[in-house]
Amino acid sequence: MEAKLINPFINATLHVLETMAFMKVRPGKPYLKKDNVAKGDVTGVIGLTGAANGTISVTFQEKCILAIVSNMLGEEMRHLNGDIADAVGELTNMVSGQARKELEELGRVFKAAIPSVIMGRSHSIAHYTNGPRIAIPFSTDNGDFTIEVCFER
């Protein structure tokens, strides 16, 4: 997969979390992920169509998403629940939107579906295509999260 398709998702993630959750996050090195087991405890998935078809997912460790949503809402969140799932859906939506804006500037126009959210330890992430899964790990002072980008070959 072209690196220029991955970078917009990294930039979008940094921008979304800094703006909405006031958090500095540190991207790690992207790698090819071989299995469908989520690295996190709650995952947002959104389908993209257009210049290519695929999905992106954002999967958060519990401690990480509790800190993020606490910052977003200005109140302490202590447990994974419906509020957290809702926030993960919106975060996924915003990452998708920002990335698609940058991709448009590269001449690649995408449309996005409405995100879905999965919660639970060691759940599976189903990408809609069988293309390579590029995982991008991110770390924060409150745990880690991972973006997966998967476009058809």
């Binding site: 703006t19 919106e90 939506n93 915003m94 998708s96 939107g97 804006k101 448009e104 126009v109």
Partner: peptide, 27 residues
């Protein structure tokens, strides 16, 4: 107030009579 930030989205919203447009994420 939307994550839809592509040019065509803004054009469609303006043509439909939107008063203003904010892209998520926002301050």
């Amino acid at each position: 107030v939307t994550a839809e930030a592509q040019k065509q989205n803004v054009i469609e919203a303006v043509q439909a009579g939107v008063s203003n447009y904010v892209v998520k994420p926002f301050t």
